[in-house]
Design a protein around this nucleic acid. Sequence first.
DNA 1: TTGAAAGCGCTAACAT
DNA 2: ATGTTAGCGCTTTCAA
Lengths: 377, 377
Amino acid sequence: MRAHTKPLRESFYVSAAPTVYDVAERSGVSIATVSRVYRNPDAVRAPTRERVLAAARELGYVPSGNARGLASRSTGILGLCFPDYSDPDAEAGEAEDEDPAMLYSDQIIRGMERAARRHGYALLIAASLEGGPESLVAKVAGRVDGFAVLARTVPTEELEVISRRQPVVMLAGPREGDDHLDHLDHVEVANFDGQRELTRHLIEDHGLRRLAYIGSAEESPDVEARFRGYLAACRAGGVEVGDEPDLRVGMMTQAEGARAADVLCARDGERPQALVFANDQMAVGALHTLEQRGLRVPDDVVVTGFDGIPLSRLVRPALTTVRQPMVRLGEAAVDLLVKRLSGARDAEPVSLMLPVTVVRRGSCGCGEGEGGKPGVR
Amino acid sequence: MRAHTKPLRESFYVSAAPTVYDVAERSGVSIATVSRVYRNPDAVRAPTRERVLAAARELGYVPSGNARGLASRSTGILGLCFPDYSDPDAEAGEAEDEDPAMLYSDQIIRGMERAARRHGYALLIAASLEGGPESLVAKVAGRVDGFAVLARTVPTEELEVISRRQPVVMLAGPREGDDHLDHLDHVEVANFDGQRELTRHLIEDHGLRRLAYIGSAEESPDVEARFRGYLAACRAGGVEVGDEPDLRVGMMTQAEGARAADVLCARDGERPQALVFANDQMAVGALHTLEQRGLRVPDDVVVTGFDGIPLSRLVRPALTTVRQPMVRLGEAAVDLLVKRLSGARDAEPVSLMLPVTVVRRGSCGCGEGEGGKPGVR
DNA sequence: TTGAAAGCGCTAACAT
DNA sequence: ATGTTAGCGCTTTCAA
């Protein structure tokens, strides 16, 4: 027996936690048996098991996850790393309701948590916050069996290195052509298809010809893909377009959306028939400002968004948009990780493209039946 | 040097992850130095440090969180355990939007995640799912520096034992009088006060006298506290009440709320002037059904909820309710944990009661100005 | 500033 | 069915 003895104090807060040794000693068995009681109860005779469990209870024994992970090389934990969207506003006041930035990662967290739970994993979530040689990913990577990374949270080089040792799935960011990251599993949503289909709907079903696209100034592969979908539909429909968005805004917020609408609708004669926004936030902002300008949506101008945030359904007119399956994204990530972890370690990298749904509602002139969900009108 | 040598393979997927030994060997230093480079870079001369870092990069070294945690007795992780609210419906279809059951724990997760991040911790979340002698809590407990438990997720006895070794904070469930759990930190919301104040408003400001309370059949201390608040206000206002809710429903869902409204408003002559629901979900359901019955809210009947879910603001008429600071709850939990972890290990147990806010909106006849948030109307 | 060595608490062969 | 014995990969005195 090892010199592992600890004073069995009676005071309430005990400094050192009891270990297998303590439990073993107290119940008169070996540490191996104690371990077995937890890992594989059936391998221990019932009376013995009872004694061990009793001793554990008396001592307040809780197995150390760290020691376990170290010895067994697995943790039962899946991870998620995402950028620190922290937002000055978020500090202040209520922040209770639909904060779009939160929602995005939150939906993914929801999906992952749910799926992880189904597979018996817990979820470790961490937002990148830089610091030292020890980036966040490394911290997470060292503690989980596999993890998902949102978009481009992490230097690809580092990811490349880590992903040699454990499953990593890349979320939402499109796979780069010639990147280091070709061997990662990867899940994205059909940005291109969604925007194309939505645009097609505007052109063909509503007969609109003068569209304006409002994109982002920041480089975002998602937004680019959406824009390309828009272009494709325009060209297919014989609508004349340049190869740049009509406007690029900085933040894709409601405020920017409102401003964009103001700018684009100012030139009265040539006002676009439709404002196609790269996300719902901007579109909602536009709706608001258009109303104030006395322009009716969809009669005077059609507005569309992208994302399918809850708010999009609740504004008036309800927003025609493309719904992204965020929760699914999280679920898919977990499923991929779990698959890798249970055998398929070196299967071919998988790349999933989750389908999106065009949601036709009032802001394009469709969807009378919308908004009829109980309690909301 | 230990027999720790591993073949440096060139194939892409390497089986064993490199360790401090590998890095040490490759950079010609001792493992102690490698460790120092990560834990305390300044204790190592710059050139040495560079060499180590370079070797680490070449090898794809990632420190093992487990080994670290084991050796240093701390993880940098905070935990959250909550009940498995999993919901048959949740499996199906979209589940994208505001699902109240999710929202509840999700808001707390948001709050905790945010606060944890501020303090440099990551968050481990796990929903209880039973299984063997190793309950979820134990699993979480063994992997975090401290954790929060939602309501009565866990047998109190087990919690008692665990909480001797690490900080635990109990969320939302009221502290039992004579429980084992008196030494835990504890955060709840002012259910009693909130419901009392809301009810007082109905009685005194709107002059209502015939109220009906719709509570829950399941035992829930929160709902009980609300009901007691209601009673207190009624009695204070000289309104006659029994000591049981006028109706108790099973699930507190929209459907049940609708049914409750039907039942209570059926008896036409003595229809209540106000339906006071124990949560928003039910109230929203009631709004819907009342509209269909041709009863106008608030003119014919006043409706109120409790929780302050986003939906409450978006229905028409907007719902008068009591807003619970869920995100704050999560933040408070983290703050408490962090405080304990940084010194105050055996300070007196703290019990926080977070204030709630009565939100007066259309459904009680107040709040013309409400709903004016940009983009929502 | 760096190295040597002793654990941290557990799991997993291998014995018995 | 149970015990023995090595580690797992890192941190941390204590020396040098």
